[in-house]
Each structure stands twice: as structure tokens, then as C-alpha cells.
Design a protein around this nucleic acid. Structure first.
Length: 117
DNA sequence: ACCTTGACGGTTC
DNA sequence: GGAACCGCCAAGG
């Protein structure tokens, strides 16, 4: 396929460690697409369910810059995302997550690694 | 080539 | 806090 941007995004999302979260804008920046948070949302909506390059894409570790799950509360996907996060010990109160405690803070080495492709 | 759609973000009030 | 508004721009129709 030719949608290079989606692939860069999926790949970056795969770097988020288990038990941590990242926001859409943060992923966009790390993927080399500054200012394109919305594209990240679109890309996540299209992750291959079977995974990509042999690994699953942990879409549920991506939330918005306000620390909230971006699906309408009550929707099927909202529940699914919340469940996945709680399963890996991320505390979700209502729809909110404390970024201060759970946001992924990639170190320099990780950033450089992600830029090599 | 034009128009709409996004799992968004920052600014402002 | 939260809501309204505007900027963003690749993809798909």
C-alpha cells in the first residue's frame, strides 16, 4: 500500500510501553508529522485488526491531550479502551487518566530509534 | 479538481 | 473545569 503516514503512525504507537499512554499530538510529533494529531486519529481507526508487521498495534494506549478517552462514554469502544487500560494497571477515573502519572516519556534513544525508518 | 471527514489541539472567554 | 471557535491536512468520495 502507499499510505506511508499511516504506517509511520502505527509503528510509533507500537513503541508505547505497556502500562503507559500517549496523546494523539505526541504520536504525531514522534512520527515526524507535527501538527497532525487528527491524522493519528484517522490512522488508528484503520489499524489492521490482525496487527501490523507481526505485532499488534496498541491503539488503546492513545488518548487526547486532556487525558481523556476520545470515544463518547457509553460507546462500545469507550468501554473496550477503558478495559484494556485497566487491564494493564492504568487508572481510569470516569473517562480521565492522569497524564502526570501515566504519560509515556520517551528518552532520546527511543526517539532516535523511531526516526530511523 | 473540489468537498467532506476525522478516536485532535491550542486559545480564548 | 468546559464550551465555542478556528487551524490543521491526508484520504476517500
Amino acid at each position: 500500500m502507499q499510505n506511508i503516514h499511516y504506517q509511520q503512525i502505527w509503528q510509533t504507537v507500537q513503541l508505547i510501553p505497556q502500562g503507559q499512554v500517549a496523546c494523539y499530538g505526541q504520536i504525531a510529533d514522534l512520527a515526524g508529522l507535527p501538527g497532525r494529531a487528527r491524522l493519528v486519529g484517522k490512522a488508528l481507526g484503520k489499524v489492521p485488526k490482525k496487527g501490523w508487521r507481526g505485532q499488534s498495534v496498541p491503539w488503546f494506549r492513545v488518548i487526547n491531550s486532556q487525558g481523556k478517552i476520545s470515544f463518547p462514554s457509553g460507546s462500545e469502544y469507550f468501554a473496550k479502551q477503558k478495559q484494556h487500560l485497566q487491564d494493564e494497571q492504568v487508572v481510569v477515573l470516569g473517562s480521565k487518566i492522569k497524564l502526570k502519572d501515566f504519560q509515556w516519556q520517551p528518552d532520546l534513544a527511543e526517539i532516535l530509534f523511531s526516526l530511523e525508518f
